[in-house]
Design a protein around this nucleic acid. Structure first.
Length: 778
RNA sequence: UGGCCCCUCGUCCAAUGGCAGGACUCCGGCCUUUGGAGCCGGCAAUGGUGGUUCGAAUCCACCGGGGCCAACCA
């Protein structure tokens, strides 16, 4: 099945799930506002397309959702109006519409400045006069804390004065910066008093010379989102660390919740190419490719010029999904989408890439026929045909003839008969060679007039091959550019010994064929028209270089080529089978015993001993000993319920998880209450499963476990006779599963138990259910 | 002597603590005036070790592996 066109609406990923959840809970009062925030300093590429499809897609899928196009244009030295224009063009070409939601961060400069003033007034920002090298030095490293700038404690008054004078243009570039006052020993480097504003006496493409102080990303982005009432600010994984600052700035600016929240997803990486603005710039500037729209580049402009459709790109983005794992996508998936899309919509036409003359000896010299050839095959529901001239002298593909063919070669060879597509059967009767070089220059054939139109022969004989062709005298000369992967290595950035990624450039990424011949029907077609050249691939006329007098075509993607695989196998029966790319992700087979505890203080060792003495498992004891909060709660709980092993289990396995995103002081229940919960399980009042539900409520809202059990009416059902009817019903409803279970798929036991647990809302005793089901099905 | 994130078929993405599933690729077969398309079928995975649990891909720990962070870029 080709991809369901609606699948983008049906597909769900963790971000869409989050948006749906926010809609359900009414967090943003039913609003969904996303944004695509490019910096106008380069051209869009396929990686951006993923973000565009995500952001605009989510807006489209939700009632009333909108997606803003916002230019993050805060760096006057790199940005240009031409980029802003091309980006808008590319987004539209991809099929998305921001309606009137077009924004520029540069329009917010005045408001951002006022926020900066507020930060200064509140003591949350200061003017630093260290040089850039000094700032770097003071920042420390990932393993060492930074040091505070000597200017960190300037008075609010002085900061305000300096900042105002920075804006007024009194200082040179780099003389001062505005920094957030957070802390210089933060483990997250981003939080070490980040720079918020810098001085740049540079003309901005939109604000001209109005400003000489420009805000930086971390300050601008979150506030821009907030000013636009964005709800879901989606960005790529490398901004994970920035989120803490994103929230800090919004807090400092006094933006109230509910407000924009940042969520990170994995950026797109593609095999055998690079998707990074900086690397693309190098390829263009160093002349490795012919420009930003070189068809070998994964830029939107390059893909467009190559003939890739926007639908194919959207389908691709839908296919690859959205997740948090850094991944590298098989370029074959893009090719699949391109073929799938083009197959259903482009006309077929015949073009001979590497011509070989074929003369039909028994066809009259002065005769020409106009053969009616449909534009689409039987399985593409589109209409239309054109006339293709047929004559005594034709060109066929050089690869379609072999003098001494291997067994599975179905094409033309001495004495062999094949079909010429839409025309006649021809049989090879002679091969003409160049006397000097021995190169085949011409094939002589006879044709069977009975087989016109490609039907079968009157005597019922069959041919195995069908060849495309053009008439030598009527066909048009054409230049055809064949593209291949830009790099020879799946991950070009993986380099050794001082090389850089350009070392892996594929020298044959573009092959130009200048002798190709194409049927005359394409003569008047507009530049950029897409075709399938039958038996070859999908092509389009080059929108830049193709002229009516000198046709130029780009190969978008080749057809799937089964023959190439067969041929490869014939040449190398073993090698091709195991030919695999060696760059797959490293798998690691290491067995290792849990190692001895790393540096433990004497106090901790003593605590471990104490816990173990109480009966706590050694691993759990170590975890408790390392964390005062945990051990405090543990001690408190044990006083209520003296089963230290069980209590430790609750603390280590359940509580620890919650403390990852909730501060211990915010926990709405006490150690005593946790102990009470453990007691309820141990005295069999409730099952473990129910207890987890109770625990979840305690985390959510707090409360005495006994009360929760009471209110919910929780009581474990362990009486087999009470459970039997439910099990019977289930078995009756899932006869297919029963059969599978009896056939040996024992994993289904879990399915049945799970169903009963669901049915009874966790009240059934799973051990009893399990045993009961097992007996019933045996 | 850091912090954060991540680890499921070859690839990409799924799976309330309860049947490990889909797509791409690959391999067969059918069909075919494109060695295309289509149809049918097949191969193929939870990084490791412990723990919690009636039940773990999912929760906890440790180990291993990968990624991001030290621009006055975004």
């Amino acid at each position: 099945m080709p991809l369901n066109p609606k699948s983008s609406q049906q597909s769900s990923d963790f971000i869409r799930a989050m948006v749906a959840e926010d809609m359900r809970t009414g967090k943003y009062a039913g609003r969904v506002v996303t944004r695509f925030p490019p910096e106008p300093n380069g051209y869009l590429h396929i990686g951006h397309a993923k973000s565009i499809c995500l952001n605009f897609g989510i807006a489209e899928e939700n009632e009333g959702g909108v997606c803003h196009l916002r230019f993050d244009d805060t760096n006057p030295e790199l940005e240009d109006i031409k980029y802003a224009e091309s980006i808008q063009h590319d987004v539209r070409w991809l099929g998305f519409d921001w309606h009137d939601q077009l924004f520029f961060a540069s329009d917010y400069f005045e408001r951002l400045y006022r926020y900066a003033v507020k930060l200064i007034e509140d003591g949350n920002a200061y003017v630093d006069s260290l040089s850039d090298e000094e700032i770097r030095e003071y920042r420390g490293t990932v393993t060492e804390p930074g040091r505070e700038s000597p200017y960190r404690n300037r008075s609010v008054h002085e900061n305000l004065d300096l900042f105002q004078r920075m804006r007024a243009g009194e200082f040179e570039d780099g003389a001062h910066v505005l920094r957030a006052r957070i802390r210089m020993d933060a483990p997250n480097m981003v939080m070490r008093d980040p720079v918020l504003y810098r001085i740049r006496h540079a003309s901005h493409y939109r604000t001209g010379d109005e400003w000489c102080v420009y805000p930086l990303y971390d300050f601008t982005h979150c506030l821009s989102d907030a000013m636009e009432d964005v709800t879901h600010s989606l960005c790529s994984l490398e901004f994970k660390d920035s989120r803490e600052l994103y929230d800090w700035v919004l807090d400092a600016a006094g933006i109230e919740r509910p407000r924009t929240e940042q969520t990170e997803f994995a950026r797109l990486n593609l095999d055998y190419t690079v998707v990074s603005k900086r690397k693309l710039v190098r390829l263009v500037n160093e002349g490795h490719v012919r420009g930003w729209d070189d068809p070998r580049l994964p830029t939107i402009a390059g893909l467009r010029r190559r003939g890739v459709t926007p639908e194919a790109i959207r389908q691709f983005c839908d296919l690859i999904g959205v997740a948090k794992v850094d991944s590298r996508i098989d370029i074959g998936k893009l090719e699949f989408c391109v073929r799938d899309n083009l197959n259903k919509q482009v006309p077929r036409v015949m073009c001979v890439l590497r011509p070989l003359r074929l003369v039909i000896l028994n066809y009259p010299e002065d005769q020409t026929e106009e053969i009616d050839a449909p534009y689409y095959p039987h399985d593409v529901p589109k209409e239309g045909s054109r006339k293709v001239p047929f004559s005594r002298v034709l060109y066929i593909e050089r690869d379609d003839f072999q003098e001494d063919p291997p067994s599975k070669f179905f094409r033309l060879a001495p004495g062999r008969e094949v079909r010429l597509r839409y025309a006649y059967f021809v049989k090879c009767v002679d091969v003409v060679k160049d006397a000097d070089t021995g190169e085949i220059t011409e094939i002589h054939c006879t044709y069977d007039p009975e087989t016109k139109g490609g039907g079968s022969a009157s005597d019922g004989r069959k041919v195995k091959g069908t060849l495309h062709w053009v008439s030598a005298g009527h066909s048009l000369p054409a230049e055809v550019r064949l593209y291949d992967r830009l790099f020879v290595k799946a991950d070009p950035e993986e380099t050794a010994g001082g090389e850089d990624f350009t070392a892996h450039l594929n020298p044959h990424s573009m092959v130009t064929l200048r002798e190709s011949r194409i049927e005359p029907s394409v003569a008047g077609d507009a530049p950029g028209t897409r075709y399938q050249f039958e038996r070859q691939g999908y092509f389009c006329s080059d929108s830049v270089d193709s002229t009516p007098d000198a046709l130029v075509f780009n190969r978008t993607v080749g057809l799937r080529d089964t023959w190439a695989k067969v041929a490869a196998k014939e040449r190398d029966p073993v090698g091709s089978a195991k030919k695999k790319d060696g760059t797959r992700r490293a798998k690691h087979k290491t067995s290792d015993a849990p190692s001895a505890v790393d540096s433990e203080t004497p106090e901790q060792s003593a605590a471990v001993a104490r816990f173990v003495g109480q009966g706590v498992a050694a691993d759990d004891a170590r975890i408790l000993a390392r964390d005062e909060v945990l051990s405090g709660i543990f001690d408190e709980a044990v006083r209520v319920h003296s089963n230290p092993a069980a209590v430790a289990g609750w603390v280590v396995n359940e509580l620890r998880r919650e403390l990852k995103h909730t501060a211990a002081t915010d926990l709405p229940f006490t150690g005593k209450q946790l102990g009470a919960l453990a007691a309820l399980v141990d005295d069999k009042t409730i099952s473990r499963t129910m207890a987890k539900g109770v625990f979840a409520e305690m985390v959510e809202r707090g409360g005495e476990p006994g009360d929760i059990v009471e209110r919910r009416g929780l009581r474990q059902q362990s009486d087999p006779s009470a459970l039997e009817p439910i099990i019977d019903k289930l078995i009756a409803a899932h006869q297919d599963k029963v059969a599978q279970y009896k056939a040996g798929k024992t994993g289904l036991l879990r399915f049945f138990v799970g169903q009963v647990m669901r049915e009874t809302e966790g009240r059934a005793n799973p051990a009893v259910v399990s045993e009961s089901v097992r007996q019933r099905l045996s």
